[in-house]
Amino acid sequence: MERGRSTSSSENLLDDFEDDYVVKSIGAFGVWQATVCVIAALVRSAAIWNMLSIIFLTPATQFVCVKFEDNATVLAQNSTCYNNCVEYMYYEEVLERTLISEFGLICDGAWKASFTQSMLMFGFLIGVSLFGWISDRFGRRIGLIISCTLNITFMLAVPFSQSYWIFNTLRLFIGMASGGTMIISLVFIIEIVGPQHREAAGSLAILPDGLAQGLLSVFAYYSVDWRMFLMEYAIASVVIYMFIVFLPESPRWLMSKDSNMSLSNDDEQNIWTQSINGCYSNCHWYYNDYPHVCATRTYWLHDPRHHRLCSNLHYIRSPLCLHF
């Protein structure tokens, strides 16, 4: 009778594993998941800065003509365009020099101010699709590193733009990289926590966006012109992006790729040894909660999900040095 109850209990336990194997192995939410979520959420800040910086780059600007052709004397009106005007003076409120005054985006060229943001958002559209595919094909971590590296490279280059069209070309690539950063970081957060915490994690992940918006005004306050403004938050982005080296690969992506499916008998024995000495020591709550799983050796050895997760578990947790 006792043996029958034990067998039934083991079968129920194995059925529970079918629900969410990753959660059963590494937990639904803890210090490790919280740390990863915070880093992934902060990475979004650079994309928010790129998207909202247009507020200070092309603000509503008043101007007046101060020089006419043939030195004609004309009583010029504020924010009025003249065909014979050869020089305008701009009234700036925050930055001493913006894209409006730098590239003369007024009168016939006024449409270029909004076109700048259109180029960025078009890049976002491309980046979301492109880096979504890259993250699915090569991994969330690889996709995030690539998008962040490209993002910071073009962000550091754009303040040195010498023409309007060079600026917009760089903004297009910045938009592509920022789109990748936005989409991958959110997927990272959703996949790293258990299903019961996904709604809360997804909602809390956008809280740093508000902080990023507030910091944007601080950057503008301490900037002289648009070049200094862009360089300030580009340098801040470098500091934030340094933390992505501590991000592990998404365990759910590793599971989905069926790695380590083909194992020899020696490999199985090694993994069995690692599961006793490695996985259980790193995930002690798992062993404490389900100690009788050790007796189900046949199940562990022939379940490829355990091979994949156990062999990658040390890799997943090692970057943050959070062994529990």
Rank of each mutant, 00 (worst) to 15 (best):
S114M: 09
S114W: 02
W226T: 13
W300C: 07
L170G: 00
G214S: 15
F160H: 15
C279F: 15
F17G: 10
S45V: 12
I244E: 11
S250K: 01
F56I: 14
C148K: 07
R5T: 14
D209I: 15
S259Q: 14
S217P: 06
T273F: 04
V74S: 01
Y222C: 12
E18F: 14
Q274N: 12
R137D: 01
E18W: 10
G180E: 03
M231A: 06
T116A: 12
S101H: 00
N151R: 01
Y287C: 06
H314I: 13
I271E: 09
A110D: 12
L150Q: 03
S281M: 11
L13E: 14
V245M: 07
H306V: 08
I100G: 05
F229Q: 07
Y315R: 08
S118P: 04
I100E: 08
L254T: 10
R3W: 10
H284G: 02
V74D: 00
E268C: 05
M182D: 09
C107W: 03
A220D: 11
C37P: 03
L57V: 05
G30D: 07
M119D: 07
A28Q: 08
A236F: 11
L125E: 00
L230M: 07
L57G: 08
C37M: 05
L230A: 05
T80Y: 09
N282I: 14
A113M: 03
T181I: 02
E96F: 02
G278Q: 07
N265E: 14
C65L: 06
N71H: 12
N168F: 08
